[in-house]
Write a protein that binds this DNA or RNA. Structure first.
Lengths: 184, 184
DNA sequence: CCCACTATAGACCGATCGGTCTATAGTGGG
DNA sequence: CCCACTATAGACCGATCGGTCTATAGTGGG
């Protein structure tokens, strides 16, 4: 049995899940503490800025984890990265009955400067990484544009999937985007 | 001077604006009343279901208005509709310093059934309307898929624009989507 | 004329919000 | 050995949450 993660990690973990379910405003400190089994004092010890601090860190952490997961799952081509991404989201949406979305999208819609800032940096990081892959077959400007577009399309499809309670928008995105990222 | 709109219309109007700024959870009944200059009792007279009722109606109303606006601004081709859409959002984001997004996206991320339901219906309505235009040059299945994809891409671009405080994602979407919707 | 409807102002409700603080323990390094 | 750090439980704070209710007016149709 692995040792129990520290209070800080448990807080971040619970916050990511709650962001995905309810967004920033809907995430209460009390529920974060309850779900993570953590004392109130520990939160303000690790995150002196309180909730805003915690949410920003959760956003960054989720962004890093997603990039790592997708890179590990795909074979390094843009097409397989796209499949890894769509497959993961389809599985997650189905598993949690469309109740969990993207924590970075949730952070992007907050009005706190630090939170949207963190979300913006994650989006930029994803775009840069994908642009590197796409740049093998295209000039850099077009690669960057297409990479940012893929991020937009997947985030938007995710939004629609949750509202429609259907994975069709993501599958539609897979088909159209595959036509765009595959070398012509 | 036009007569002051009724309490119901003022409530819906203020709610749409607040949804765009703060999302469903971030929208407080007290602030809706303050901004609309409406009495507390009037809210529960017109919307017996309270906040959930009001938010669902605001979502539907905003969806109808957006469809009307875009239809009025464009010349009826998919390409000009796309331009009307992107132009309007770029202007709005700039005007309000990236502080106002899409109220339907905000509703889509709520966990209340009636709210996400309303958002889903709006998305479906937009998709159907656009699919009609795109179907002139394509078979119906491809037109529907592309229409839903356009909605995803624009909503996702909007999300990124707010996080990055930049209109670049929307301009990227315009370029890529134009290539997809223009008859080949 | 009156009655149903809409509207307004504002008191009030219990619940929850994020944050601060005290008291008490365990623990690991200098 | 002790001291700084991390952790826990829980009381407590003022502010805000969504919702209910009463009292008072205006208004338009039967």
């Amino acid at each position: 049995m692995p040792t129990r993660p520290g209070a800080r990690d448990r807080l971040v973990e619970a916050t990511i899940t709650l962001l995905r379910e309810r967004g920033v405003h809907g995430t209460g400190v009390a529920e974060v503490l309850e779900r993570s089994g953590t004392a109130r004092g520990s939160l303000y010890q690790h995150f002196p800025g309180g909730k805003a601090d915690l949410v920003a860190e959760a956003t960054r952490s989720a962004g890093r984890r997603a990039a790592r997961h997708v890179a590990r799952t795909s074979d390094g081509t843009a097409g397989s990265l796209l499949d890894a991404l769509v497959d993961w989201w389809v599985a997650t949406l189905t598993k949690h009955d469309f109740g969990r979305g993207c924590p970075v999208a949730a952070a992007a819609l907050d009005e706190t400067g630090a939170t949207t800032d963190a979300a913006g940096r994650v989006f930029t990081g994803w775009t840069d990484e994908l642009a590197g892959l796409l740049g093998q077959d295209r000039d850099p400007e077009e690669a960057r544009r297409l990479a940012g577009f893929v991020v937009s399309a997947v985030e938007g499809a995710l939004l629609q999937c949750r509202a429609l309670r259907s994975t069709v928008p993501l599958e539609d995105a897979r088909v159209v985007l595959r036509g765009l990222v595959s070398p012509s």
